[in-house]
Design a protein around this nucleic acid. Structure first.
Length: 591
RNA sequence: GACCCCGUAGCUCAGCCGGAUAGAGCAACUGCCUUCUAAGCAGUAGGUCGCAGGUUCGAAUCCUGCCGGGGUCGCCA
C-alpha cells in the first residue's frame, strides 16, 4: 500500500478526464508530476504539484495553474479517502486524508509484515548486476574495502526489495603483475617454512604476516620439491595456490560482514578459460564497430613525463562516447591493458543479458569511469546502463582521534579487526549512514556507545523498545493476542495523538522511500529514514513520561491499547524490514 | 593543463532528475527529570546553501564561469 502512488493514479485519472473534455492536451506525461509528503505536516498529508507542472498546458483550457489546481482539488473532494483538498502557495494541491487512511496504512504494514513496501517485480523488471568489493587477492581486506563491500551488498539488497532481479558479483584481479608478486612472496614464506632464514622481506614483495600460513601449507603440500627450483617451474602453481588462499581469507572477511556473492569472476579466465581469448574477442567486437585504431596519444600533462615514449598504440575511440581521450588497449609489451580486460569482462556481463550494471569502486578509480561508460555504451549499443558508484575514503577514528596506522609496511588496520572490535551491525550501519561519495569518519569508540549520539544504537534501540512494549502488554493483559491478524482488527481511529499520527505518516512513506532509494542507487536513504522513524518513536515514547495517558500500554483501556499495539507492531516490523535491507540486526532487546 | 567528487548552521552531515518559511544530530544557551517507559526530556538561538551570472512562474537542486578542498591523469591494478 503506497498512498503516494494511489493518489498519483487518481490525480492522473482526473487530468485524463480534463484531457478528454478537451481542456488539456491528450498526451500529458503523467510521470512529470509528483505526489509527495508536504514540507510541513500542518499542510496536510499529501501534496501534489501537478497544476504547476502542467502550467503551460493549462493555459488554454484553464487560464492558469491556480485554476487547474482548484479544479483538481474540487474533483478530489468527493474521494472516499479525502477529508480536504485545498490549493496553496503557487499552485500546490494539499490533501488532508480522512482519518481512516493512515489506519489502513498501519493495517497494511501489520499484515504485510516483511513484505510491506516490497515491490513485486514482474517479468519486465530490469536484471541488475552489482559488482562490488573486487579487492585484489593479495592480502586481507582493509577498512576502505569494507565500505565498498557493505555499500554494494546493501544496494543489492535494496534493489531486490524494490523488485529487481539482482546478481552479486566479485571480480577477481588475478591476472596482473601483482599476483606474481604475491606468488613470490608466498614462495619466500614457503622457504621460511622449510627452515630457511629469510631475514627481512625484500623491497617489492608483500611483507604481511598473513602469508606465513600460506607458506606453511605450501611446504606441507610440496615438501621440498619446489625448493631451489627456478621461478619458471613453480610460479604458476604457487600463484594459483596463493590466490586461492587469499580468496579464502577474503571470503572469510566478507562472511564476517554477512556478505556473500553469487558469482566470483576470474580476470584470468578471460584469456585462459574454455571460451578462448575473450579479450581478443571483445577488441574484435569493437574493431568491427570501427572503434579501434592505431595512433598516438599526447603525453599526459601535469607531471613531467620522464619516461614518456611517444609511440603508436592500439586505441579505443572512447571519445566518441564522451571520454576525454582515446584509451590504449595494448601495452608496449603486447599484453592487454587492464582496461582491455575490463572491456571484455563487461562484455561478458552485457552478453549475459543484464539491463543495468552497477560497479562499486574506490574513489581513486574516478578517472576510470568515463572510459568504462564509453565501453559499455559501445558494446551494448546503448542498451545497457552502467552506473559506477564511487566510495570515498574511510577515516578511522577512536574517540575523536585518528587511529594511527603503523608505518611498517603490511601492518594496517584490517577490516576483520574492526568487525571483531565493534561488531557487524555497527560497521554496516555506519558505512551506510553517509552518502557513498562523501568521505566517512568511522569512530570505533562512538559506534559502540549506548546513547542517542550513536545512530546504530538509536535505531536498534527503537526496535528493542517496541518489542519491550509488547512484552509489557502481555504482562498487563495476560493472554492478549498480539498476532498481526488479531491486531489488524483494532479500532485504528483511536490513534489520534499527533505523535502517533506522525509515526503513521512516516510508516506510510516507507514504500515510497524504498522505491526512490532503489531508483537512485542510494542505500543511505534507508539508514536516514530509519533514524527519522526511530527519532519519532523515541520522542513520542518520552511524552508518556509526563503524560501517562499517552503510554502505549493502558491498563484501563484495552481497546485503545490494542490500537496502539497495532501501531507498535507495524513500527517494529518496518524497522526490522529497513534494517534488514541494510543487513543490520533488529534486536529484541539491547542487553 | 584536463577530468571526477566535495563545498549547506560553530562542528559532522541530510535535502539535489526544480517546488512552499532550507532540515537533523552534536556543541552553545534556558528550563525540566534524578528516574525505572534503563541507556534523559522539552525548548531557544544559530544559515547571503562557496562566489557571480544564466534558464524558469519558481533554483541549495539544472547550465556556464570563477574560488577553495580532495582525488586521478599512456604502458600499474
Amino acid at each position: 500500500m503506497n498512498i503516494f502512488v494511489t493518489f498519483h493514479d487518481r490525480i492522473a485519472a482526473i487530468l485524463a478526464e480534463f484531457a478528454k473534455a478537451g481542456r488539456l492536451p491528450a498526451d500529458l506525461d503523467m510521470a512529470r508530476f509528483v505526489v509527495e509528503p508536504p514540507r510541513d505536516a500542518t499542510m496536510g498529508d499529501l501534496a501534489c504539484n501537478a497544476a504547476m507542472v502542467f502550467a503551460k498546458e493549462a493555459k488554454a483550457g484553464f487560464g492558469g495553474p491556480r485554476t487547474l489546481a482548484t479544479e483538481i482539488a474540487f474533483a478530489l473532494a468527493p474521494d472516499k479517502d479525502v477529508a480536504e483538498a485545498e490549493v496553496a502557495g503557487p499552485g500546490f494541491i494539499n490533501i488532508r486524508l480522512k482519518h481512516h487512511v493512515l489506519g489502513d496504512v498501519v493495517r497494511a504494514a501489520l499484515t504485510g509484515g516483511a513484505d510491506f513496501g516490497r515491490a513485486r517485480g514482474g517479468a519486465d523488471a530490469p536484471k541488475i548486476n552489482v559488482e562490488y568489493v573486487s579487492a585484489n587477492p593479495t592480502g586481507p581486506m582493509h577498512v576502505g574495502h569494507g565500505r565498498g563491500a557493505v555499500f554494494g551488498d546493501a544496494l543489492a539488497g535494496l534493489l531486490e526489495f524494490a523488485g529487481h532481479t539482482v546478481t552479486r558479483e566479485y571480480y577477481i584481479n588475478d591476472a596482473g603483475a601483482q599476483v606474481d608478486v604475491l606468488a613470490r612472496s608466498a614462495f619466500l614464506r614457503y622457504r621460511e617454512a622449510l627452515g630457511e632464514e629469510i631475514g627481512a622481506i625484500p623491497e617489492g614483495l608483500y611483507p604481511g604476516e598473513y602469508l606465513v600460513a600460506a607458506g606453511r601449507e605450501l611446504a606441507a603440500k610440496y615438501g621440498g620439491a619446489l625448493f631451489e627450483r627456478p621461478e619458471s617451474e613453480w610460479l604458476e602453481d604457487v600463484r594459483a595456490f596463493a590466490i586461492d588462499a587469499m580468496m579464502d581469507m577474503i571470503r572469510d572477511d566478507l562472511a564476517a560482514l554477512n556478505i556473500t556473492h553469487e558469482v566470483f569472476f576470474s580476470e584470468r579466465s578471460l584469456t585462459r578459460g574454455p571460451a578462448g581469448d575473450r579479450v581478443a574477442a571483445a577488441i574484435d567486437d569493437l574493431r568491427a564497430r570501427g572503434l579501434v585504431y592505431v595512433g598516438r596519444l599526447p603525453p599526459p600533462k601535469g607531471q613531467p613525463p620522464d619516461d614518456w615514449e611517444d609511440r603508436e598504440q592500439t586505441l579505443f575511440r572512447s571519445t566518441q562516447f564522451g571520454d576525454d581521450i582515446d584509451r590504449p588497449l595494448l601495452k608496449s609489451d603486447g599484453g592487454y591493458t587492464y582496461f582491455a580486460s575490463d572491456i571484455a569482462y563487461h562484455k561478458v556481463k552485457i552478453d549475459a543479458g543484464y539491463d543495468v550494471l552497477i560497479d562499486v569502486w574506490g574513489a581513486d578509480h574516478g578517472g576510470y569511469v568515463k572510459r568504462m561508460n564509453a565501453a559499455v555504451k559501445a558494446l551494448s549499443g546503448g542498451r545497457v546502463e552502467l552506473d559506477v558508484k564511487l566510495c570515498q575514503l574511510v577515516k578511522l577514528m577512536r574517540a575523536g582521534e585518528p587511529v594511527k596506522m603503523s608505518k611498517r609496511a603490511g601492518d594496517f588496520v584490517t577490516l576483520r579487526e574492526v568487525v571483531d572490535e565493534v561488531g557487524v551491525d555497527a560497521v554496516r550501519f555506519m558505512m551506510l549512514y553517509r552518502k557513498n561519495d562523501a568521505p566517512l569518519e568511522f569512530d570505533l569508540a562512538r559506534v559502540i556507545e549506548q546513547s542517542k549520539d550513536n545512530p546504530v544504537f538509536y535505531v536498534q534501540y527503537a526496535h528493542a523498545r517496541g518489542k519491550s512494549v509488547l512484552r509489557q502488554a502481555s504482562a498487563a493483559f495476560p493472554g492478549i493476542d498480539l498476532s498481526a491478524r488479531a491486531l489488524a482488527g483494532a479500532d485504528m481511529s483511536r490513534l489520534s495523538d499527533e505523535g502517533e499520527r506522525a509515526l503513521m505518516r512516516q510508516i506510510a512513506q516507507y514504500p515510497r522511500m524504498v522505491e526512490q532509494a532503489a531508483a537512485a542507487h542510494e542505500p543511505h536513504r534507508v539508514a536516514f529514514w530509519l533514524h527519522d522513524l526511530a527519532s519519532l518513536f523515541h520522542a513520542h515514547w518520552n511524552k508518556g513520561k509526563d503524560a501517562p495517558q499517552l503510554r502505549f500500554v493502558n491498563h484501563e483501556e484495552r481497546d485503545l491499547t490494542c490500537a496502539r499495539l497495532a501501531l507498535v507492531v507495524s513500527l517494529t516490523s518496518v524497522l526490522a524490514s529497513g534494517l534488514g535491507i541494510l543487513g543490520v540486526n533488529a534486536p529484541d532487546e539491547m542487553r
